[in-house]
Design a binder for these strands. Structure first.
Ligand SMILES: [Zn+2]
Ligand SMILES: [Zn+2]
Ligand SMILES: [Zn+2]
Ligand SMILES: [Zn+2]
Lengths: 141, 141
DNA sequence: ATGCACTCTATAGTAACTATAGGGTCAACA
DNA sequence: TGTTGACCCTATAGTTACTATAGAGTGCAT
């Protein structure tokens, strides 16, 4: 994609392919203000630059670490005024790590309970199901 | 709460208090067909029975194990025709356990990455932040 | 000139709730 | 008997991070 000034641009489809992000998702990121609005071609098509691609990669890497879109927005802002705000990046990251850890711990409790539940429902059992009994809190297993 | 036939009923507020479920959530469960519609008083108030309370407890226990509302709906159906469908309860539970396990494993990967990232951003660091650098994929740390 | 891939906007749906507005009900108390 | 206050009602919109769809326009190649 090339515009009238002979500069190189990416169409939304190009950006989608080069980053592995769906076209609709890219538009969604723009809509919520995460990805800056690109210039448009005469026909109204989005014309992205290398900078947009970099921001999108930043978003993708952050998502892979489980950051929410709001957290990512803050990280992006902080990454622009890089001095003085360093500490806030650390705070966001530490808080986020704590969230992840508490999710892990609650999922691990579920895992343990489910494992025990499954033991009480061996294959081929015909009458009263131990799983259902447990969910009903009938303690006659 | 007592109705005209002198039977004991629970108001939605009673049910809420006795189960720890918010009033709006109880109405929501009814709306999506998870909790059966209760009879109403003359004034149009919901009048719940012991049976409703039991179903709500079933839902609460299932939620604590991470089951989705759709899974719970299936478990509730299966718990009614208890014969022959036992196997399906087991399948639902096993599949659910696998989901939980894959969530745990992806969260653990995030945890590890975040821990490493935090190491590269010691408190008080002034210039370029290691976390932001990593998200930008600048491998000059 | 016509086809085809691509793009555009706007709207609604997903999961499991929560929040709000604008109103009715009911028991008790003066 | 009137009124207060706690409770209840419905309907609608908001939350998160997308995905899906409809209906229409763009741009390149044959
Ligand atoms: Zn977070
Ligand atoms: Zn069983
Ligand atoms: Zn599940
Ligand atoms: Zn840092």
């Amino acid at each position: 994609m090339v515009n009238k000034k002979n500069h190189l641009f990416y169409s939304i489809g190009d950006l989608s392919k080069s980053t592995g992000t769906k076209v609709v998702t890219i538009r969604y990121y723009e809509k919520i203000g995460l990805l800056p609005e690109p210039p448009r071609t005469e026909g109204g098509y989005r014309a992205y630059t290398k900078k947009h691609q970099e921001i999108l990669f930043f978003i993708i890497r952050s998502r892979a670490l489980g950051f929410s879109l709001i957290e990512i927005q803050n990280l992006l802002k902080l990454s622009e005024n890089d001095i003085l705000l360093n500490q806030d990046v650390l705070t966001i990251t530490k808080n986020h790590l704590e969230n992840i850890r508490s999710k892990i711990s609650s999922l691990q409790k579920m895992e343990t309970s489910l494992k025990n539940l499954i033991k009480e429902c061996p294959d081929g059992k015909i009458s009263g199901c131990g799983i259902i009994d447990s969910l009903n809190n009938y303690s006659d297993t």
